[in-house]
């Protein structure tokens, strides 16, 4: 982990609200593993002080190029979406503790919802030797991205949209639940919005499936110094605030308490 100036190689719209950026970041590309993130300073506007933590979407170790996929939600990501090829980005990375695959894992289910689909592509690319089944949830057909990439490394891709414009209509967690009733998995890795994660926790606990989830929280330094990006880890009797940036963002599903979150 260090601070770099990374040149933008390309930056374009992938789907409604979603953009993909590729940057030249050899050192990060060399060390990063799925579930980690980079922390980006928004150039050109000093009033936007904080960096934006964005998960790594994929890496090409040979070329040293790194992909991110980000959703335009506010001023910072809007500014990011306007950046042209060739501009240097001030980034920190790779940060955080990502996903890990316990020894003996053969079958892997990966699940992503919306923006949370982005880090799961890196999972599939890195661990493509496993039997991967992908579960992808989107709001609508217009927001679906990188489906072809998932089809490349997955035995099967399950897709849902909230409005039914593509794939199954409804929650991707319901599709997962159905699938788990037919066929279990050694491990499930997931990332998505809080309501989805809450539903997922219930399903994996019922089916007794080991599951790691990647969390999100409003973040400051990204390196463990300011303790603002807290999440509740433990059990109901004994819990602690852990830092999403350095203790996570990936945690085991059963230790994440999301009671107060919405």
């Amino acid at each position: 982990m260090s601070r770099y100036n990374a040149k933008i190689i390309e930056n374009y719209q992938l789907a409604e609200d979603f953009y993909k950026m590729t940057i030249d970041a050899k050192k990060i590309a060399q060390w990063a593993y799925p579930g980690q993130f980079i922390h980006i300073k928004i150039p050109g506007d000093n009033s936007l002080l904080l960096r934006r933590p964005i998960s790594i979407n994929g890496i090409d170790v040979k070329t040293g190029q790194l992909d991110i996929v980000y959703q335009v939600v506010g001023k910072g990501t809007k500014a990011l979406s306007k950046l042209k090829k060739g501009i240097g980005l001030d980034i920190l990375g790779p940060l955080g503790k990502g996903f890990h695959i316990p020894e003996g894992t053969k079958k892997l289910y990966i699940l992503g919802g919306g923006c949370g689909v982005a880090p799961m592509r890196f999972v599939g690319q890195r661990w493509r030797h496993l039997d991967i089944y992908s579960f992808l949830g989107f709001r609508s057909q217009s927001t679906v991205f990188q489906l072809n990439d998932f089809e490349c490394f997955s035995r099967k891709v399950f897709l849902s949209t909230d409005d039914g414009t593509m794939g199954y209509k409804g929650s991707i967690v319901s599709l997962l639940n159905e699938r788990l009733s037919i066929e279990k998995t050694d491990l499930l890795l997931a990332c998505g919005p809080i309501p989805m994660i809450k539903a997922l926790q219930k399903v994996v606990s019922e089916h007794d499936i080991p599951c790691q989830i990647s969390l999100e929280e409003r973040m400051g330094c990204g390196v463990g110094g300011c303790v603002v990006c807290s999440c509740v880890i433990g059990n109901r009797k004994q819990w602690d605030y852990k830092k999403v940036c350095t203790d996570g963002p990936v945690f085991w599903s059963q230790e994440v308490i999301l009671d107060g979150e919405s």
Partner: peptide
């Protein structure tokens, strides 16, 4: 001290609001 529940940080124009609460 455990500190305050999240979110504990907000970005404002040229500023940052925090409410860590001495964790």
């Amino acid at each position: 001290r455990k500190g305050n529940p999240p979110p504990r940080i907000a970005e404002t124009p040229s500023g940052i609001l925090n409410s860590v609460g001495l964790e």
